[in-house]
């Protein structure tokens, strides 16, 4: 089952590739149009953060199954500078885009599950899962 696919993220075009991969997989798994759009938006945000703040990293996608539920998991990993104050970053209204509701708190809301793990000077790993309804 664990067929993980990854996209290296080094520039803005890679963000599009990551989205494309996410959309294909979401479609295949049977997600509807709205959820497809939500998943790709989450991927965009995570990939853009990697590109902007870590320089490079990767976005991996894997279908998951748990207690009969199917879903899609996004794994965003980088070896960048890490996030100093995660609690603050997860607060609404903190993002540099200023009250557009995007950024990490937005991703958390778009997806069903969200975990973030970050170490200063060594990198960030974010897992976000969306379940099929």
């Amino acid at each position: 089952m664990d067929i993980q696919s990854c996209v290296e993220v080094c520039n803005e075009w890679d963000i599009v590739s990551a989205r494309q991969l996410g959309r294909n997989m979401a479609k295949e798994l049977g997600f509807g149009n709205v959820d497809q759009a939500r998943i790709t938006t989450a991927i965009s945000e995570l990939a853009r953060n990697i590109y902007l703040y870590a320089g490079s990293g990767k976005i991996c996608l894997e279908p998951v199954e748990q207690m009969g539920r199917k879903g899609l998991r996004i794994i965003a990993v980088d070896n960048g500078p890490g996030i100093r104050d995660i609690r603050k970053v997860m607060e609404d209204g903190y993002t540099t885009s200023g009250g557009l509701g995007a950024g990490l708190p937005g991703v958390k809301r778009l997806m069903d599950e969200f975990t973030i793990d970050s170490t200063i000077d060594s990198g960030t790993e974010i897992l976000a899962t969306k379940w099929l309804r």
Binding site: A37, D92, L100, G101, G106, R109
Partner: peptide, 13 residues
């Protein structure tokens, strides 16, 4: 989707 983002943030705020 972008409006959805803003809408949900608004709710939570």
């Amino acid at each position: 989707i972008g409006y959805g983002f803003a809408y949900r943030e608004h709710q939570s705020l």
